[in-house]
Simulated scan of single mutants.
Amino acid sequence: MILVTGASGSVGRRLVRRLAGTPTTAFVRDPAKGDALGGRYAVGDFDDPATLSAALKGVDRVFLNAGGAVPAAGEQPMVRQQLAVIDAAVAAGVSHVVKLSVWHARVGGKLAEGAHGVIEEYLKASGLAWTILQPNGFMQNFSTGTAVTTHDGHLLGAYGDAGVSYVDCEDIAAAAAATLTDPRPGETFVLTGPESLTHSEIAEKLSAFVGRGIRYLDLPAADFATHLTTLGLPDSFATDVATLFAEVASGRLAPVSTDVATLTSRSPSTFDTFLRENATQIRAAW
């Protein structure tokens, strides 16, 4: 039995669909979202140990997945929550955990990179067999608005002219399904798309697809942080986000990995394919 945490999210719901036919339980907080997934689910919360223990009964593999970084004083909540899942998995006799992380996760990093770094190290020391998936930014960010800042209908950021090899969540889910059904213990895989695009190039593609002019507006990191505070984000969080964007401008998210193809035996989706396959949602968003 596989337990998929974060089952109603961008990756989780796609993974649940791909695991149809394999004994799987989706772990959700909202029963309505569990119903929408159309299969077996358990209702619970990472902060409620009893619900974790109940959901893990009879489970031998876990997909460890949760939300991203949030404005918070001190440690990111995801650290406490995912460590609780790992502890519960050990107690339940789980054999293998596949963790969804982020590229460049490391202890001491900013926001999600630092939080996932702590969680990765804890998982590796837990005694459980583990596999870590480190995806680049999600293409779906451009269809949902998540982590994409816009201004008057244009893209806004502090990426400079550096490329980013964004990855489709469908490819992340396919890689996760592969490692859950054919375990690759002790390995870390970096998941990217097949091409590196600048945000100006992405804006051009969006323009052509939705039929209106969309530009990428680049700001210095400090000005971008100031802009984020006008949207209501705390100063410290906005500064950390802007710092990460500035690191992207150095080109650290531009390389292209072959790990999606290694795990799934097919090439990952291009940004153009992503646009075509999500046309209704993208046109509604833009």
Rank of each mutant, 00 (worst) to 15 (best):
Leu228Thr: 06
Asp223Arg: 11
His227Gln: 07
Thr229Phe: 05
Asp171Glu: 09
Val190Ser: 14
His154Trp: 10
Asp182Leu: 14
Arg212Gly: 05
Ala176His: 15
Leu217Asp: 13
Ser200Val: 13
Thr226Phe: 00
Glu187Ile: 04
Leu219Trp: 03
Thr192Tyr: 00
Asp171Cys: 10
Val164Trp: 12
Thr192Ser: 06
His227Trp: 07
Glu187Lys: 13
Glu204Gly: 12
Ser207Trp: 00
Thr192Gly: 02
Gly193Ala: 02
Thr198Arg: 03
Ser200Thr: 15
Tyr216Arg: 08
Leu156Asp: 15
His154Tyr: 07
Leu156Thr: 12
Ala222Lys: 12
Thr181Gly: 06
His199Ala: 11
Tyr216Glu: 03
Ala176Trp: 10
Tyr216Ala: 08
Asp168Phe: 10
Phe189Thr: 02
Asp168His: 14
Gly153Asn: 05
Val167Arg: 07
Leu155Gln: 06
Thr226Trp: 01
Gly163Ala: 04
Leu206His: 02
Tyr216Pro: 08
Lys205Arg: 15
His199Leu: 14
Leu180Arg: 10
Ala178Ile: 06
Gly157Ala: 06
Gly157Phe: 11
Ala225Cys: 02
Gly186Ala: 11
Phe189Gly: 00
Val210Thr: 15
Ala222Ile: 13
Tyr159Ser: 12
Leu206Trp: 00
His199Cys: 10
Ile214Cys: 04
Thr226His: 01
Ala173Trp: 09
Leu180Ser: 10
Leu219Arg: 11
Ala173Gly: 04
Gly157Gln: 05
Pro185Trp: 15
Ala162Trp: 09
Gly186Tyr: 11
Thr229Asn: 08
Pro220Cys: 02
Glu204Ala: 14
Thr229Ser: 05
Gly157Lys: 07
Ala178Pro: 07
Ile202Lys: 09
Val164Cys: 12
Gly157Asp: 15
Leu231Ile: 06
Val210Ser: 07
Gly160Asn: 09
Thr179Pro: 07
Glu195His: 10
Arg184Gly: 09
His154Gln: 06
Thr181Val: 06
Ser207Met: 01
Glu170Tyr: 12
Leu231His: 13
Ser207Val: 03
Arg184Val: 15
Pro220Gly: 13
Leu180Pro: 14
Arg184Met: 12
Gly163Trp: 06
Glu204Tyr: 01
Pro185Gly: 10
Cys169Ser: 15
Gly160Val: 05
Val190His: 13
Pro185Phe: 10
Glu195Asp: 14
Glu204Lys: 10
Tyr166Lys: 00
Pro220His: 07
Glu204Cys: 00
Tyr159Ala: 13
Ala178Trp: 01
Thr181Lys: 08
Ala158Thr: 04
Thr226Ile: 03
Leu206Pro: 00
Ala175Met: 10
Ala174His: 10
